[in-house]
Design a protein around this nucleic acid. Sequence first.
DNA 1: ATAATGTCTTTTATCGTAAAAAAACATTTG
DNA 2: CAAATGTTTTTTTACGATAAAAGACATTAT
Lengths: 311, 311
Amino acid sequence: MSKSNNVYKDAYNRCLRLLEETSNLPSEPELGATLGVSRTTVRGILARMAENGLIAWDKRDKTVLRAPKEDDFFPEEETDSLSQIIERSFMRRLLAEGAEAGMQINELELAREIGVGTTSVREFLIRFSRFGLIEKRRNSHWVLKGFTHAFALELADIREMFELRSAAAFTVLPDDSPVWGDLDRLEAEHHVLAHDIANRYPEFSELDERFHRLIHSASRNRFIVDFYDVIAMIFHYHYQWNKAGQRSRNETAVAEHLAYIAALKSRDAAKVEAACRKHLMSARQTLIDSTPEGRQNVMAKRAGTPAANTA
Amino acid sequence: MSKSNNVYKDAYNRCLRLLEETSNLPSEPELGATLGVSRTTVRGILARMAENGLIAWDKRDKTVLRAPKEDDFFPEEETDSLSQIIERSFMRRLLAEGAEAGMQINELELAREIGVGTTSVREFLIRFSRFGLIEKRRNSHWVLKGFTHAFALELADIREMFELRSAAAFTVLPDDSPVWGDLDRLEAEHHVLAHDIANRYPEFSELDERFHRLIHSASRNRFIVDFYDVIAMIFHYHYQWNKAGQRSRNETAVAEHLAYIAALKSRDAAKVEAACRKHLMSARQTLIDSTPEGRQNVMAKRAGTPAANTA
DNA sequence: ATAATGTCTTTTATCGTAAAAAAACATTTG
DNA sequence: CAAATGTTTTTTTACGATAAAAGACATTAT
């Protein structure tokens, strides 16, 4: 069981969707490009589709014979990459109760628990370490630093520094830069979301990421762009775990984004800074509230008792 | 040959040095703490020392019998960790001629060339990727982005942002903070270096790192502190490869550091910012000059021809 | 002659395994 | 009885091997 063929399975599933839309599949290289896999994998997919009577495959001719049924698809859990599986398991543990700072992380135990080899776990931890939540002791174990109040503050500080700079750079981008088109499209998507926020608020998370990544890209600085990975990762799990008040939070954020977008389009540096600051402030608060310490504070406030000082 | 015992060999060599200073070695746990290794390794060291007649070891008694000779030491090259070996080889290739941006990196080839397993190379590349010089294509090879002019600018931009912020934080640290003592000691070391700069300028590199790390630590932000790893790594290799004009560069830097330190001690925010800005500006120029494009410019300037525009 | 297909080779992703090193537990000593 | 030593177990580090996936080369079709 040395390597799972999840790339193949995932691409196969995506290819099934393609099948619904045409009566003839394109050439192998073209298919490879659309699915983001090599021709080797494409041919594997075509072979199976032919075998299962989905298409008639003879050289260049790939005629669709029937629409895919539910059980033509590989089960979803078989299409995840190993690193996704490890990340999910690890984050579940990290955000679960009892994951306190200072706790040590055992590679072997993690690997056994998830049911994967130690190498994959090691590689995951190394990649994950740049998020600042874990730290390695030389020749020894990893130490959990935890998703704490301090972490939230440090993350928010850097984010603000980077995004203010990026937003400023954004405003001076030339008129013919493609970012303005991207921004228009994002604005339209925000409006769509705003008009049906009651039903579509869960879609915000993904839109949020695209919007901020666009702004960060204006910095033209790889360290700033890469740093957004940290934010995206944290927000991704935060959105999954902390559903309380999500709708109202997202509603506020959409409004702030629209103001922010308007400011960017005005190209007025002062307005941009104000809109950016305002949005980042509420994002900061959201993040802080979602840390274990923050949650206690939120609950204390709701109960009418004064909040503990966590600063 | 599944794992080298470089930890043991390195600790053994360091322990030999300890031998020169005392007639009795301390307890096993204490030795482990000073050498930074486990008791298992300490006992291995003691066993060998006893075997080679360096000490008489009987339980708590570890009497030194003779001073270590030259060939008691393990050869230096056997004390390097695998990751150090890989890093050096990799950097040599990266800074050598013909390492152009876009070039692809082959794990297997690298591993074979260095004579190590592929896993170690993979892990190294993952760790190294945070420096922004390489990038991974999903399910495929790594791509070299190169130590280019753009890289130098992006790095310098972030560095300035982070260090200005850290320096500002430094000035408002309370009087009883240990950093002031650290700063005094560093200042003294700078004076020592300045007085004998002709002979001791190569020692600057290490002092430089300690000084800037102290300042960055005042930010109390893990992302800022961690980012100094990128700078330190780049400067480390830059110092090794680009010896031209090193003495005068270091001399300037020492003077700038002393002014910077004086500003910090004055706790005058404006003075600190000015001194910090000034030093970072020349550091930026040094870095830019050491990129391949930069070197060409420097040479062109020396030859009296106008410099090409690389911005 | 270009672009597709068919075939073969290389590289990456992942595991099991073994030595080195750390850590845990048990025993002795001052 | 606390701190050291002695002993055993666990964990980390690294390698070689193997299946999946990518990539390169050869051949065929339009």
